[in-house]
Nucleic acid binder design. Structure first.
Length: 949
RNA sequence: GCCCGGAUGGUGGAAUUGGUAGACACGCAGGACUUAAAAUCCUGUGACUUCACGGUCGUGCGGGUUCAAGUCCCGCUCCGGGCACCA
């Protein structure tokens, strides 16, 4: 009987669904194991072959754990809110809910066809009101809590208000941006609006002014990566930075815990280091400088208080609120111009300018706290408003940027650190001996840092300070297709969160999905929805994509619960994710927010774990091959030139060729034949009249004309590895591969491509090998005429050895997520069993169970044929027995001076001295030793022998 | 510039963590079956050298440690990813 995969796959997909084979219960005696994939955004183009790589790996592991006796939660869902659906809506007028639904259904079909063992009864969509109800609920909790640094956890705002009523904000240690002190009486005297403003500085979800990339022409706010050189990527319109009141999440309150938590989780070192850098914790001091002629002081943050005697100027961020007051009338003009110049530059540009420092003198002076000398104050774009205090004490001798600035503006440079004892130290290393620095001269840098901090604390002008690069997270989007922020404002503009009873707050229907003229989100168009009957108004911003994905893994534990984000029992049972698989492009955004929300919900006692993902594997990207055709436009005519005739590609324009037209796709020699050229020319109207020049002739108007006798029509295309995407016309659809080779083959092939974390270009060069392997495996059970070959005979010792070796290898490889080597292990086993002519049921049954996680369809079919009632996927995983692995003799490689010269078998129990003596008398050894003498003879039992001459 | 990864046959990749480099697969070559082809099966396949037995070289480059290095150490080159006036 032939191995007919399409029939088998269809049959078992239906059976698994009907039997609920992969449904998992929240009640079990088995230990739990939670395997999760980063859920996809369901785009209109469906899955390509790159997506399933991680899904297949995690599915194999989930199936493996299930067979190993765990109760495995392995769900899937969709990150269904997002920009592409909204842009599609703006262009095509289709409601995002409709296109999203269509796309998710297509994804579901594709995912099922791969044979992934998801419990589809737990499927979620972040855009479903039943789901986003709880996203909104968590937002209201963030709004109703502040961060108590003493208790090191989130606490209710109510408690904060009670504290204010008693004590004002004296002796309060909370995460806040509020600077002033107030008493209980002050608090009582504050208006409702003033109280609201004060509390906003404490809430974990709060409103504040942030700058956004505003594009007037598009009438919308753009993300950083949609802006290039100050112009919108789409349409090339000018983009300006505009201050806008926005919602933020106070993630910085959790900075330390997010940093510390990294120590407890099993992620790749690179991922952890990305997060560490993102958090960017630094230790230093806050020092306040007096200002000449002003009451106020200027606070600066520095990691190098020891260099304070080297300060020769100060620099403020151009947006710093003190700039206006410091600037003298004479400098006003220049400063205003500079501020204006900086405002016109995007954050990217400001950061990209490294060589050429710019700035402007304000005319104002600060007073050095120790020397009492006046220090000129400048503004410059290299100081960022949002980092530290937005102002620095500049030490040109010990900081490259300060140095460049001082040189440009002719400012004095005082050497304060002598690094001659540390020849390898760089400028930024905190080592050296302090010089030219009054009372700290002669100290080592670390001691000097301590001494200055002690002094400024004693003088009451400073304190030790910790600073983070990480900023509070902008949480507002002026978009339609996201969770509405569940906030209403009363007539005074005081914000209130909606109670749970009023959630979910669903998206209103809007006449148009574009933003309003004044920059409000499209929700602003739903006038009746925004304006409540009692005069209150709704917030019109929506949440970003990271909101729904920050907690989705919890929802899978109890996806249909309408009374809680997840039932207490369910979430306590499943807890956090044991294995999380996804791309490293989510290193900061998604993974950081998820960790933050988890810690917050932990603080509130809703969950009993404070990290979402215990182990995380980054799957590599599967790249596509981009096929490029070179062309020239002359007098409005298009000439395509075959790539093998192109010397310098810079002389030509380039065009992506849809890969389905290309022969020998992915190879250097890839080309368009006559048929391909016809299709390509017909595909784009501009090309219908084009000429295609190649070595043997030319192609025009659907006709090939050879210029050489017997010339072949081969228009060579240039092949290049790159991202797989719709716009490059190079996506490869898993459906086609599955139709041709079957899902088992597709699964195994993706694994066989190499280690899971590695990126690699997609090609089907080796897929035949897997296909052959599966047919050979099948052939152990059925011969070509469909005769059942499996016997009840006792297996031979050789066959047992092959089986148990394979089990051992596969178990070992599974535990280290080395799926590619598992596949070669199976191949070796099948090759061996074939040679041994083994058809023993005992052996084959174990092989079926062993391979079940990789090839779920063929194994299920054979399992039934072997006479089993239940599913192989609910059976158990085989284990190996060392007794079958004992070798009677071991082949020892014999090396002479480290070079292998022979392989000699010795009994497995041969003693070291037995082997030594035997080796000495070996002919080959004699030959190599010759008339020299053996200096040393090393025998590593069970491994090898090395003779040193 | 800084911080992480990586580099092994024609190709994808293996190597039990210092112990037979190149498993497995693709590709290629030769052969069997066939009227022929496909499919299938068998054999060979790192390079150089040799009629052959064999020998020499060989894991990006240059050093080192060791009886023994793809694996450890030092110094580079190239490729991929992340961060980048962060005070």
């Amino acid at each position: 009987m032939e191995f007919n995969f399409s029939e088998i796959e269809k049959k078992w997909l239906a059976a698994w669904e009907q039997n609920g084979t992969y449904q998992v219960s929240n009640q079990s005696d088995r230990p739990k194991y939670y395997v999760l994939d980063m859920f996809p955004y369901p785009s209109g183009s469906g899955l390509h072959v790159g997506h399933p790589l991680g899904y297949i790996a995690s599915d194999i592991f989930a199936r493996y754990k299930r067979l190993k006796g765990f109760n495995v939660l392995h769900p899937m869902g969709y990150d269904a809110f997002g920009l592409p659906a909204e842009e599609h809506a703006i262009r095509m007028g289709v409601h995002p809910a409709i296109s999203t639904k269509e796309n998710t259904e297509r994804y579901r079909e594709q995912l099922e066809s791969i044979g992934l063992s998801f419990d589809w009864s737990r499927e979620i969509r972040t855009s479903d009101p039943s789901y986003h109800k709880w996203t909104q609920w968590i937002f209201t909790l963030l709004f109703e809590h502040y961060y108590d640094k003493k208790a090191d956890k989130a606490k209710p705002i109510k408690e904060l208000v009670a504290y204010f009523e008693q004590n004002g904000n004296r002796d309060l240690d909370a995460a806040t941006t509020y600077e002033e002190l107030f008493s209980a009486e002050d608090w009582a005297a504050f208006s409702r609006k003033e109280k609201d403003e004060v509390l906003m500085h404490y809430r974990l979800a709060f409103r504040s002014v942030g700058t956004v990339n505003w594009c007037e022409a598009l009438g919308t706010v753009l993300a950083n990566d949609q802006v290039k050189n100050g112009l919108s990527e789409r349409g090339q319109h000018p983009v300006e930075l505009r201050p806008m009141t926005q919602w933020f999440l106070r993630i910085t309150a959790y900075a330390d815990r997010l940093l510390e938590g990294l120590k407890t989780i099993d992620w790749t070192e690179s991922l952890k280091s990305i997060q560490r850098h993102w958090i960017g914790r630094s230790e230093g001091a806050l020092v306040k400088f007096d200002l000449q002629g002003l009451e106020e002081q200027l606070p600066v943050y520095t990691t190098r208080p020891d260099t304070i005697f080297g300060v020769t100027f100060m620099v403020l961020a151009p947006e710093h609120e003190l700039v206006d007051r410091i600037t003298t009338p004479e400098q006003k003009e220049e400063v205003n111009q500079y501020v204006k110049y900086v405002a016109g530059r995007s954050e990217r540009e400001r950061n990209a300018e490294v060589k050429d420092v710019t700035g402007s003198f304000t005319g104002g002076y600060a007073i050095h706290p120790f020397t009492k000398k006046p220090i000129p104050i400048y503004i410059s774009e290299y100081v960022l408003k949002d980092y530290g205090t937005g102002a620095i004490m500049a030490v040109p001798s010990d900081d490259e940027r300060d140095m460049a600035f001082a040189k440009k503006f002719g400012i004095e440079i005082i050497d304060v650190i002598d690094k001659s004892d540390y020849p390898n130290a760089t400028l930024s290393d905190k080592v050296g001996k302090v010089i030219n620095s009054d009372f700290i001269t002669g100290m080592e840098v670390p001691d000097a840092i301590e001494e200055i901090i002690k002094r400024v604390e004693a003088m009451g002008i400073g304190r030790r300070g910790v600073n983070y690069k990480m900023r509070d997270a902008g949480f507002s989007r002026q978009r339609y297709w996201g969770e509405p922020i569940p906030i209403v404002y009363d007539a005074d503009g005081v914000a209130f969160s909606l109670p749970l009873s009023e959630l979910p707050l669903e998206l209103p229907d809007v006449p148009e999905f574009k933003p309003t003229a004044d920059g409000q989100s499209p929700l602003g168009r739903a006038v009746d929805w925004v304006n409540l009957p009692d005069g209150r108004k709704r917030e019109t911003d929506t949440m970003p994509g990271t909101a729904g994905s920050a907690w989705y893994f919890m929802r899978y534990t109890d996806p249909h619960n309408n009374d809680a984000f997840a039932g207490k029992e369910a979430i306590d049972y499943w807890q956090n994710v044991d294995l999380y698989v996804g791309g490293s492009e989510h290193a900061v955004a998604h993974l950081m927010y998820s960790r933050f929300w988890t810690k917050f919900l932990y603080d509130l006692g809703y969950i009993n774990f404070d990290e979402p993902f215990k182990k995380l594997i980054n799957q590599g990207m599967i790249q596509g091959i981009i096929e490029i055709a070179f062309l020239k436009k002359e007098n409005g005519k298009i000439r395509f030139i075959s790539a093998d005739m192109v010397d310098n590609r810079k002389d030509f324009s380039e065009f992506f060729v849809p890969i389905e037209f290309v022969s020998d796709y992915g190879k250097e020699t890839s080309y368009l034949d006559e048929e391909g050229l016809r299709k390509f020319a017909a595909w784009n109207v501009d090309f219908a009249k084009a000429t295609f020049e190649m070595k043997d002739g030319y192609f025009k108007d659907g006709q090939f004309t050879p210029t050489k006798e017997g010339g072949q029509c081969r228009f060579v295309t240039h092949s290049e590895a790159g991202k797989m995407s719709k716009s490059r016309y190079n996506t490869i659809n898993p459906d086609d591969i599955i139709a041709e080779y079957g899902a088992d083959c597709f699964r195994m092939y993706e694994m066989f491509l190499g280690p899971i974390e590695q990126s690699k270009p997609w090609n089907t060069n080796g897929i035949d090998g897997i296909s052959k392997f599966l047919r050979r495996f099948w052939a152990l059970f059925y011969d070509a005429d469909g005769k059942w070959l499996v016997t009840e005979d006792a297996p031979s010792p050789e066959a047992l050895k092959v089986l148990h070796q394979t089990i051992k290898k596969v178990l070992f490889d599974m535990e280290r997520f080395s799926f590619n080597t598992c596949v070669s292990g199976f191949m070796v086993a099948v090759n061996e069993l074939r040679k041994l002519n083994c058809h023993s049921k005992e052996i084959l049954e174990d092989m079926v169970r062993l391979m079940a996680p990789f090839a779920p369809f063929i194994t299920e079919e054979l399992w039934t044929k072997l006479g089993h009632e239940g599913s192989v996927h609910l059976s158990s995983y085989p284990d190996f027995d060392e007794k079958y692995l004992v070798k009677s003799s071991i082949d020892y490689p014999i090396s002479i001076n480290g070079k292998k010269r022979a392989v000699v078998p010795f009994p497995a129990d041969a003693s070291k001295s037995d082997i030594e003596n035997a080796v000495r008398s070996l002919e080959i050894v004699q030959k190599w030793v010759g008339d020299k003498e053996i200096k040393r003879l090393i025998v590593v039992p069970g491994r090898m022998v090395n003779v040193v001459v």
